[in-house]
Design a binder for these strands. Structure first.
Length: 198
DNA sequence: CGCCTTTGACCGGCGC
DNA sequence: GCGCCGGTCAAAGGCG
C-alpha cells in the first residue's frame, strides 16, 4: 500500500497486524488439458505471471472478481509432463458461482456448484448426460486429481472421458465431495470403490 | 467505457 | 547487508 507520485513511491505506515499472513488452506488438482485456464464456474482476473524456476512454463495468478471474495488460484503447466495443468486454489468463495454448470443441475447446485446428490449419480448416467448436453467429448481425457493438503498429496485417477471445458468444474465438485466426507481426507484417503461411485 | 491481460517494478521472507 | 525467489501491484494497452 502506498502512493505513487511522478515515479516516487511514498510508503505509508504499514498496519502492524501481528498475524504473519497466515495462508488459507489450499488444494490443487492436475488434469490433462490443452488450455491452461480451465472453466470452473467462477470469474477470475489475472493479476500476475512469473517464471517458474527450473521450468520453461510460467505460473499465472488469478483472483476471484467478486467483491470482497479473496479466493485466489494459480495455474501452471507441469514441467515434467507439459500436457498436464496444475491448478491450485486458495480460500473459499463467499458467494455462489455466477455460472451455473447446467440448468438441470441448478436445483442441486450448492455454493461450490456441488451437492452429494449430484455425485451420488452413477458415473455412467453422468457421462450420458454430458454426452447428450455437451459438445463431443475428447476421448483421451482421463482425469488426474491430486489433493494437496498441508503435508500430503493424494492422487486420484478417474477413468472416463470428460469434455475439456467441464474438467475444472468437475474437479471442484470432487473437492466438494471430499469435504462432505468426515475429514481429514488426507489421512483417510478414498478407496477405489468410493471413487467409482463418483 | 468497462473489464480484462500484460508486464516490469516492487515487496517481504529467507539463506548465506 | 545482499541477492534470490515467490507473490503482488498498478500503469498501460487490448478488445468487445
Amino acid at each position: 500500500m502506498g502512493l505513487s507520485l511522478f515515479g516516487l513511491r511514498l510508503v505509508l505506515k504499514p498496519k502492524k497486524t501481528n498475524q504473519k499472513r497466515q495462508r488459507e488452506p489450499r488444494f490443487a488438482f492436475m488434469t490433462k488439458s490443452d488450455v491452461d485456464h480451465l472453466e470452473d464456474g467462477y470469474r477470475w482476473r489475472k493479476y500476475g505471471q512469473k517464471a517458474v524456476k527450473n521450468s520453461p512454463f510460467p505460473r499465472s495468478y488469478y483472483r476471484c472478481t467478486s467483491a470482497s471474495c479473496n479466493v485466489k488460484k494459480r495455474v501452471e503447466r507441469s514441467f515434467s509432463d507439459p500436457s498436464i495443468v496444475v491448478t491450485t486454489y486458495e480460500g473459499q468463495h463467499i458467494h455462489p458461482s455466477p455460472v451455473m454448470p447446467r440448468p438441470s443441475f441448478a436445483g442441486a447446485a450448492s455454493e461450490s456448484g456441488f451437492s452429494a446428490t449430484t455425485f451420488a449419480m452413477p458415473m455412467q448416467r453422468r457421462l450420458s448426460l454430458y454426452q447428450q448436453q455437451q459438445q463431443p467429448l475428447s476421448i483421451a481425457s482421463h482425469l488426474w486429481v491430486s489433493v494437496i493438503t498441508e503435508q500430503q498429496m493424494l492422487v486420484f485417477y478417474m477413468k472416463g472421458a470428460f469434455a475439456p471445458t467441464q474438467r475444472g468444474l468437475l474437479c471442484l465438485r470432487i473437492m466438494g465431495f471430499l469435504k462432505t466426507l468426515s475429514l481429514p481426507y488426507a489421512k483417510r484417503g478414498v478407496d477405489e470403490n468410493t471413487i467409482a461411485t463418483l
